[in-house]
């Protein structure tokens, strides 16, 4: 069991405007936390801070009590992995090469990985996974498959933090939802309590009906309504 704790996190790019401040939460490696929030509110920035790519201005991020700033990069990479929204490939790498690159933190020798290395690296699963809009750019079927994989990985004790712009996904795959707005998490809780008409109105500025669907599955569904005009 592992715990990721964020205490009073505060980040700023230029030292003046704070992207988020006083942000605190904690999660274990058997939960899927989903962050909802308007464009440009700092969801990606937060994920990158959790990976120490953007070091915090103040506050602490700990994994099992260890401050991530005091962890060597490689150690951190073995603990938390980060899947960016899009990787821009300058050079035409083969898929296998890119997959192997993803296993880098688990390989003993980066230059000449042995067979055992591959075995270990594939068995090794990181405790936390940060997904920046994992369903972005995917077709409808692959979006659902991705959410399936997220739920399956949860069973392997991987704690995940994902961002999304589709509130329906929180009902399908997530245990907790955090709404990020005005530089902090305004609400955190189970999807059924957090994803409400009022909250969605506040994030997206549109009216959404949320209905209970009783069919081959039972869950809530969001129905966006036409605008006033």
């Amino acid at each position: 069991m592992s715990t990721l704790t964020v205490e009073n996190a505060c980040f700023s790019y230029d030292g003046k405007t704070e992207i988020f401040s006083g942000l605190s939460f904690s999660m274990e490696n058997k939960e899927v936390l989903c962050i909802l929030g308007p464009n440009g509110i700092g969801k990606t920035t937060l994920l990158k801070s959790l990976m120490n790519l953007h070091p915090l201005k103040s506050g602490v991020i700990r994994v099992d009590g260890t401050d991530i700033r005091h962890m060597p990069r490689r150690e951190l990479a073995r603990t938390i992995s980060f899947i960016p929204q899009a990787v821009q490939f300058t050079f035409p790498y083969k898929v296998l090469d890119v997959v192997l690159m993803g296993r880098t933190p688990h390989l003993n020798s980066m230059a000449r990985p042995s067979e055992e290395d591959y075995q270990e690296s594939i068995d090794a699963i990181r405790r936390f996974l940060l997904l920046d809009e994992p369903t972005n750019h995917l077709d409808y079927g692959k979006q659902m498959q991705t959410l399936d994989i997220i739920r399956a990985m949860k069973e392997q004790n991987v704690g995940m933090i994902m961002t999304t712009h589709n509130p329906d996904h929180t009902f399908i795959a997530c245990d907790k939802v955090a709404i990020m707005n005005h530089g902090a998490f305004t609400t955190v809780g189970p999807p059924n309590e957090v994803v409400t008409k009022k909250n969605l109105r506040e994030i997206y500025g549109i009216d959404v009906d949320i209905i209970d669907y009783h069919g081959s599955v039972e869950r809530k569904v969001c129905i966006p309504l036409p605008g006033d005009r």
């Binding site: 990976m51 790519l53 960016p84 690159m101 980066m110």
Partner: peptide, 18 residues
Amino acid sequence: WQLNLMALGDDEARALGV
């Protein structure tokens, strides 16, 4: 190998422990 990772991008390489 580091060159390969750096060609992916700075954040990506750092996220992979470089």
